[in-house]
Design a protein around this nucleic acid. Structure first.
Lengths: 198, 198
DNA sequence: GCTTTCCAATTGAATGTTCATTCGGATTTA
DNA sequence: TAAATCCGAATGAACATTCAATTGGAAAGC
């Protein structure tokens, strides 16, 4: 319900180019290390043009966060879960997000940088975050169905999320190799911890 | 064994002041947002003095990371575990680190920023990291004793670590309140997932 | 259909600021 | 007094942001 207007009407080409370039550059060089002039060049746009779309670099970063967040929200929304058993749905969701972040390392890296920077100081609480409220609702279903322990769904959601991020980072690190079998153990371990004992 | 020389001989007062000031300022303002001039002022030192101890800002940040990492290493090392049951030791370790990071939010925030920035690009692999190798050794013990599932200890260590970080962030957020009871559920959930089924 | 008007979109050079780093000299230490 | 520390003003580069000028294309007038 709370979708941005922009996701209704297509984002101007230039604006999208600026978003995507910033995403790439922030991964490569961090927030510092990505001057506006570089964003402009990568986006194939003049420096001044950026300021036509965004009041400041600060605002660009904030809007970029909202823009990027639509992507994983999309992933969760597409896992139409109501019809299949909760446990299967859990694994689908876990691997769905795992695959998404693995394929979109820009997005993950940007999130991580953003969320650990002072930029994110004025963000809404978990419950008001579009992404997390979907996630939380999912775990509420598991509890209601008696499949999960009676643990606050915000805790379950946060743990699940961090296990996904952790797994992506592990698998993506060139310092480490993670076997297919090992990868699967991660959500299984989490499931064993969260499931309602029989 | 691989302790830095500096932890043997006391760090010069000024140097420690610079480290601690940077830690504080990076939490407050991020890497950007903490100019050397500000570090100098907070440390009660002239700008030039910093350059007596560190070749550059870059090097300051890198050395600060090594300096800060000694703190949690200390925490792990002090949990003398060999004598008590593995399960108890697991919870001690979990809460030990939880408490440490909760009391030292500067350190946690700095780690998070550092590890997600390009600074950390040239870091050693998990196995070579002093902190993680202690952690990994701990979980190896649990596997050897048959208390834990036969899952790669580096996975167990990484998951445990991220659950701690996640919990600290959750508990520390002023957007959210986490009851004592809820907090305890987190390591319990993790334990249930990791333990060898009876 | 063909001008004319108008405004959003775009440009990139210019501006002013912020900041890391330097360095010549002062001060402390041994 | 020599060496190690320390100082902080000065330097110069990097950067976010501005703005006067240009373009393109859509509506309005003829």
């Amino acid at each position: 319900m709370n979708i941005q207007l922009e996701s209704m009407e297509p984002i101007a080409d230039k604006k999208r180019a600026i978003f995507e370039s910033t995403l790439e550059l922030v991964r490569e060089n961090g927030f510092h290390g990505t001057p506006m002039s570089m964003v402009a060049k990568r986006a194939g746009v003049a420096a001044g043009t950026i300021y036509h779309y965004f009041k400041s670099k600060d605002q660009l970063i904030h809007e970029l966060f909202a823009y990027a967040q639509q992507k994983p929200i999309q992933v969760i929304s597409e896992e139409n879960c109501e019809t299949i058993p909760f446990k299967d749905c859990f694994f689908n969701l876990w691997f769905g997000l795992f695959t998404f972040y693995t394929r979109q390392p820009n997005v993950l890296k940007f999130f991580e940088q953003f969320l650990n920077s002072p930029y994110s100081a004025d963000r809404p609480s978990l419950e008001q975050d579009d992404f997390f409220s979907l996630f939380i609702a999912f775990f509420e279903r598991g509890i209601t169905e008696g499949k999960l322990k009676k643990v606050s769904p915000k805790i379950l959601a946060t743990l699940a999320n961090s296990s996904i991020i952790t797994a992506v980072k592990l698998a993506g690190s060139d310092k480490i190799t993670l076997q297919e079998r090992e990868l699967r153990q991660i959500p299984e371990l989490l499931w064993d911890g969260m499931k309602q004992a029989a």
